[in-house]
Structure formats: structure tokens, C-alpha cells
């Protein structure tokens, strides 16, 4: 279900967080679905359980998943995105960085916008089309 790219500079726990979120967006994981336990995932992926624990804790903090005592971890019923000014600034900075890189790779502004729209559509977040 999850794939870890070791060559990426992104830490493994962040990759997990990203993939869980992506899976929820794409419909692989639905609201109320049971998440695999830390132990199961550690055994499946051959990854340190502390890393998985860290990812789960962060996801819980962000309100994406919740752990119910004695029953396991589940995807939250409603993922209410919180508006955080500081986080928004970070996203904006990351976007800026990506734009810089894309530009120096030779991508035009239109191409960059097309790529953004493609991703939005793929993740079922776009309104148009």
C-alpha cells in the first residue's frame, strides 16, 4: 500500500504522512477505515516502528487520523483543514522554491501551471474539468 523511496531527501516519516494523505484524497482510504497498526506496518515495510509512530502522531495532530483506545487507529470522519497562517507561509515558500527549480530546468510559466492543474485534478481537488 505504501512505498518508501529511500533515495529521496524527504525523511521516511514525512513520506508516510504524505502517502496517507494522498491515499485519503484518492479514495484508497475512506473516512472511518481502520489504519494498519504500527506493528503491522513495521513488519510489512521493514521500517523502524518509531518512524511509523512519528508519522501517525503527526497525522493525528493534524486531525487526519484518530486513535480509539483498544480498537486501533482510524481515518477521521471529517478532515477539517485548519487555517494556519504560519503553515501557509511555509507552503508558499516551498512553492517558490519549486518554481525557481522548475524555471531553471527550462519549464515555462504555462507549463508549470498546467502541471499544477494536473496534480489537482488527479487528487480530485480541482473544480474545473
Amino acid at each position: 500500500m505504501f512505498n518508501i523511496d529511500q533515495r529521496s531527501a524527504t525523511p521516511i516519516y514525512q513520506q508516510l504522512i504524505q502517502q496517507v494523505k494522498e491515499a485519503i484524497l484518492r479514495g484508497g482510504l475512506c473516512a472511518g477505515d481502520k489504519m494498519p497498526s504500527v506493528r503491522e506496518l513495521a513488519g510489512q515495510l521493514a521500517i523502524n516502528p518509531n518512524t511509523i509512530q512519528k508519522a501517525y502522531q503527526e497525522l493525528e495532530r493534524q486531525g487526519v487520523i484518530e486513535s480509539l483506545r483498544g480498537r486501533g487507529t482510524f481515518v477521521c470522519q471529517s478532515v477539517a483543514p485548519t487555517v494556519d497562517a504560519q503553515k501557509q507561509a511555509k507552503v508558499s515558500e516551498s512553492l517558490r522554491r519549486v518554481v525557481i527549480e522548475a524555471h531553471y530546468l527550462g519549464l515555462s510559466a504555462e507549463k508549470i501551471m498546467t502541471m499544477v492543474e494536473e496534480h489537482l485534478h488527479d487528487l480530485k481537488l480541482g473544480v474545473n474539468r
Partner: peptide, 14 residues
Amino acid sequence: RRQFLALLMDEVAQ
């Protein structure tokens, strides 16, 4: 190798 690591991580998790 992957099997071994998986077993090891399962042990650590448990």
C-alpha cells in the same frame, strides 16, 4: 534480506 529486516522490525514493534 528484506524478510529478515521485516522480522526484525516486527520484533522491535512487538
